[in-house]
Write a protein that binds this DNA or RNA. Structure first.
Length: 693
DNA sequence: ACGGCATGTCATAGT
DNA sequence: AGACTATGACATGCC
């Protein structure tokens, strides 16, 4: 154990995670042990839940692309080990001697997270207690909290002593010891050996599961002797019988008659009943070296979403976790939350009410990132920026042959997400912190929007794409805490402020991310759509690297425009283009207004025409009415005329012929009967008329 | 293929 | 004088 002691003395530590998983009201407590490397070793991978299978996942929080992902993808080839690191393999063996049942997949200077059996935990605590004493003498200042649950399982793990019949049986089932896979204990395992070891671990996975089941079966008995006997019996059983045992045990679990449960059972439940939730995980007993976690010896309550950890490529099915004292307890008050699995990390702390920043009132946090963020928020992982996890997730996805940005966006669009990186600025489920940056993505990209531009491509447009962020906004995106660094592809995609010189030029040279496989089609389609959606001036501006958006150029006041031109160093060509863009843009708007105005005028004229036509019809009707009235009046006058003549008599008493005479009105109102042939002689007529009256 | 329509652009006159 | 606006004319793309 000297290497492990050295590890401890050098400032390394052991993080004891007491996990309380709750699954649809059932809870299970389990212990996880995280080997924390000394500060001098903080440049390599953290192997989380490193299981015997080939799907162990590593965390590399300190590299530029650190984050969650498969260990093999993250493992920087050819890196140099820290000279302070213990010889590779030695520490492995010692870790294994502690009863850690899993094979570290990366070098021993990686961070190792293991689930250990209770007996192992006990021994680990004993060892680390001694190590802590040594480290305290050396100034490391680490403390070890044994943890009740670890103590409960004391001596139950036959692996702890690496002896006994079950140990031999397990050796038969898993004949290849992890450390034996390391060809050179003191040297660096080659990549080839690493792959071989992974394969072998995958093969050994089933036997490891059986071992776990055996261990859980043994835990049902209170007697250590009975445990050993049972385990021996179970170990001698054939596989089908062991499976039968597991099934019956599962049935008892489901019936609530048995409180023991293995994580294997738990994960089977999870896989078969996705609605079930891992409700909570308690983080407790976190002895940390002082250099790592000053003030963290009294750990706090953490709340993380464990199901998200599963969904984020942390294959817990394959990472067999041993939990000697795992018990499921029904929690009827939590049934409503079963749809939202989460991991709760609590600690037996002196400050139990402490709530970590970033946790919401209900203790829900979305992904495992939050889990890790809570840890980092307490400097638990050396200020590990959890956002790196998201990045490396994307990067690991990007390196997959079947990587599809759509899938990524779908990942971001998961409904229960509490964040929103999305290509479309709407949702993001992978990271809370990423939501901020992604939100900025959208805001920055859509800061300007002409109403005639389609909004469908807003998010995809760069600064020259019609939706330019203001220059002051170009750096508005908050990457400081997002972990989205320059090598993250999507940042480049959605924040294209580079103004590629020629649209036809191969832009791949400026894209650090290569679109793999079928994604090339999506990329080309995206580029086509982007370019096609650009106006001519936008493409021109893009070609000339105009650092302003078209909307800015057109929309800003002339004073600001002139000052902008004077403030920036621009070539004559650029200035000319900018002025042309402004002129054309304004003229475009003017033309639109003019046409709109013209249309309005036309509409008004059409209205006038309609009104005038209506008025004309009205007048026509009135005229007709008047004509009718006139005719009636004429008829009446005619009738009256003849009536008057019928009553008139001449000097001889004969009727006056109206064809020879006419009636004539004088100015004084008198009426004269005038012969028509003599009508010209008015005076005579008046005389005759006067005589008759 | 052709015409109608919408839109962008240019030239030019007016403000 | 320069910037802006209005508008006719033309070109282009889409339906």
């Amino acid at each position: 154990m000297k290497h492990l002691k050295r590890w401890w003395s050098a400032g390394g530590g052991l993080l004891h995670l007491t996990l309380l998983l709750s699954l649809a009201g059932l809870r299970v407590d389990l212990d996880l042990y995280l080997l924390l490397p000394p500060p001098t070793l903080l440049r390599d991978e953290l192997l989380l839940l490193g299981g015997p299978a080939s799907s162990a996942y590593a965390l590399n929080p300190f590299s530029a692309s650190g984050g969650w992902g498969r260990a093999g993808q993250l493992h920087p080839k050819g890196r140099e080990l820290d000279p302070a690191a213990p010889p590779e393999g030695q520490l492995l063996r010692e870790v294994r001697a502690l009863g850690v049942p899993f094979i570290p997949r990366t070098r021993v200077d990686a961070w190792l997270v293991h689930s250990v059996a209770a007996g192992s935990a006990d021994e680990a605590h004993g060892l680390l207690g001694a190590a802590a004493a040594a480290s305290s003498a050396g100034g490391a200042g680490a403390s070890v909290d044994g943890g009740s649950q670890a103590v409960q399982g004391a001596g139950r793990d036959p692996r702890a002593a690496r002896s006994g019949p079950l140990d031999a049986e397990e050796e038969e089932k898993a004949p290849v010891e992890p450390t034996a896979q390391v060809p050179d204990a003191g040297g660096c395992a080659s990549e080839e050996n690493e792959v071989l070891r992974e394969k072998h671990e995958a093969v050994d996975h089933s036997s490891q599961r059986e071992e776990n089941e055996e261990r859980v079966s043994a835990q049902k008995e209170n007697s250590l002797q009975q445990n050993n006997e049972d385990e021996n019996k179970v170990a001698e059983k054939p596989d089908w019988e062991a499976e039968k045992t597991t099934e019956s045990r599962n049935e008892r679990h489901l019936n609530g008659t048995d409180t023991s449960f293995s994580l294997e059972d738990l994960f089977q439940l999870l896989s078969s009943q996705p609605e079930n939730s891992l409700e909570g995980i308690l983080l407790g007993d976190t002895p940390l070296p002082g250099s790592i976690s000053d003030g963290m010896n009294s750990s706090a309550h953490y709340h993380v979403n464990f199901s998200q950890a599963i969904s984020q490529d942390v294959n817990l099915h394959e990472a067999i976790l041993l939990c000697p004292n795992n018990t499921f307890r029904r929690n009827p008050t939590r049934t409503s939350q079963s749809q939202e699995p989460f991991l709760q990390l609590n600690s037996h702390t002196t400050n139990p009410e402490q709530t970590l920043p970033g946790t919401n009132s209900t203790g829900f946090l979305s992904p495992v990132n939050n889990h890790m963020r809570n840890l980092t928020s307490q400097d638990l992982l050396y200020d590990l920026d959890v956002n790196i996890f998201d990045e490396i997730n994307l990067m690991s996805l990007a390196t997959e042959d079947d990587f599809d940005p759509i899938d990524v966006s779908q990942l971001f669009d998961e409904p229960d997400s509490d964040s929103g990186l999305s290509l479309d600025s709407s949702h993001n489920s992978t990271s809370v912190t990423k939501s901020n940056s992604s939100h900025c993505v959208c805001e920055g990209a859509t800061g300007y929007c002409t109403d005639h531009e389609s909004s469908s491509h807003h998010d995809l447009e760069g600064a020259v794409g019609g939706d330019y962020p203001e220059p002051s906004k170009l750096c508005h995106m908050d990457h400081s805490d997002s972990g989205f660094h320059g090598d993250l592809t999507f940042q480049h995609i959605f924040h294209n402020h580079t103004y590629h010189l020629q649209p036809s030029a191969p832009e791949s040279t400026s894209e650090p991310f290569s679109w793999p496989g079928r994604s090339q089609k999506i990329r080309s389609r995206y580029l086509e759509d982007t370019d096609r959606n650009l106006s001519r001036d936008e493409r021109r501006a893009k070609a000339l690297h105009i650092p302003f958006s078209v909307d800015e150029i057109v929309g800003m006041p002339v004073d600001s425009f002139n000052s902008m031109l004077s403030r920036y160093y621009l070539t004559d060509l650029q200035v000319s283009l900018i002025r042309d863009i402004r002129r054309r843009g304004k003229n475009k708007v003017a033309a639109q207004n003019c046409r709109k105005r013209k249309l309005d005028i036309i509409l008004n004229l059409e209205n006038d025409v309609c009104n005038l036509q209506a008025k004309k019809e009205t007048l026509k009707r009135e005229r007709t009415q008047c004509n009718k009235a006139i005719n009636i009046m004429k008829q009446k006058l005619h009738d009256l005329y003849h009536d008057v003549f019928s009553r008139l008599r001449d000097d001889e008493g004969r009727p006056v012929n109206p064809n020879h005479y006419a009636l004539q009105c004088t100015h004084d109102g008198s009426v004269l009967l005038v012969p028509k042939e003599l009508g010209a002689s008015g005076h005579k007529k008046e005389t005759q008329k006067g005589k008759r009256k």
